[in-house]
């Protein structure tokens, strides 16, 4: 009875799904398949060798500091970095006094309350403060940016597929729209063509304007390519500041587990050794049993 009901129910699902499939196949066969514009023009991020790639990867402190400089001089006027605190800069090689100075002299002040009047006001940053946002709120940010919202950059490299390479590709990917780009997809007023951006047209004007936009204190040549790599590395750090702890702890844990697993395998074999040996002497290896089984196999028409 159960089987009969099951059979009917199963037939029901098969028929309905088959109906959907049939409709789908007919539609697929009769309607021309249009490739979407994004599908045709969108590019995957370029391959970039970052020092933190791979299981033993580490951040390059010098590069992070250069990236921080780029953030400060190029990005920070529009983009917030709200999940990162000034104190975190000590992790990329600044000392306490430098961090204090950076927080104190940051171009945007921290929202505060006037201690005398109680009115909204601002004060100088301290190391414990997070990076203040350039805009009061989303409305202000949109108003100042042609209704586009500059995203917070703290997690941008984890919030995009292949993040660090994506940021690098996006920053270096601005170009003139290809001639065969359909008119609907051409960048409108205030938009810029960038094949690495999901819908091809991005509101952010090209932020890197050419070589020598920033001046690095460590003597690295600030080519546009280098600047893009440095800021990408910096943003990889802001998104995953514990990457080095993770890689280091992972190595210790994996090595220990390898050792422990080999040991446990040996112990397992060891424990079972006695069990197997005993069994050989008991009934089932009995030639009579073997013969019985072979006979049964032959009967079933099985070739051993």
């Amino acid at each position: 009875m159960v089987r009969l009901i099951a059979f009917l129910v199963g037939l029901g699902f098969v028929v309905v799904a088959g109906w959907s499939l049939g409709n789908g196949v007919v539609a697929y066969a009769t309607q021309p398949q249009e490739e979407s514009v994004e599908h045709r023009f969108h590019l995957s991020p370029k391959h970039v060798d970052f020092s933190f790639n791979g299981p033993f990867g580490k951040y390059d402190r010098q590069q992070l500091q250069r990236g921080f400089q780029v953030f400060k001089e190029v990005c920070a006027s529009c983009h917030s970095l709200s999940l990162v605190a000034f104190r975190n800069l000590e992790e990329i090689g600044y000392n306490e006094a430098e961090v204090k100075a950076i927080s104190n002299q940051w171009q945007i002040e921290v929202p505060s309350v006037d201690p005398k009047t109680g009115e909204a006001s601002t004060r100088k940053g301290t190391p414990a403060d997070h990076f203040p946002s350039p805009y009061l709120n989303e409305v202000a940010a949109r108003a100042a940016n042609n209704n586009a919202l500059p995203p917070d950059l703290s997690l941008i490299t984890k919030a995009r597929h292949d993040g660090p390479a994506y940021v690098y590709s996006l920053l270096t990917g601005y170009r003139n729209p290809p001639a065969d780009l359909p008119a609907d997809s051409r960048p409108g007023e205030g938009l810029h063509y960038n094949p690495y951006f999901a819908n091809l047209n991005i509101a952010m004007p090209p932020p890197l304007t050419g070589d020598g936009q920033v001046t690095y204190a460590d003597g690295t040549k600030p080519t546009q390519d280098q600047v893009a790599k440095d800021i990408s590395a910096f943003l990889a750090w802001t998104a995953e500041p514990r990457l080095e702890n993770r890689h280091r702890a992972g190595l210790a844990v994996v090595l220990f587990l390898l050792f422990a697993t080999v040991l446990s395998y040996l112990a397992y074999q060891n424990v079972w050794h006695t069990a197997k040996r005993k069994v050989r002497h008991t009934g089932p290896l009995d030639p009579e049993n073997m013969a019985k089984r072979d006979a049964a196999n032959r009967e079933a028409g099985v070739n051993l």
Partner: peptide
């Protein structure tokens, strides 16, 4: 017997789990 075998299984499980979690 099976505690020993499960011990080995746990080792392999933890190893794969650690690889994914850390890397």
């Amino acid at each position: 017997f099976y505690t020993a075998k499960d011990g080995f299984g746990v080792g392999v499980f933890m190893l794969l789990f650690a690889l994914l979690t850390f890397y």
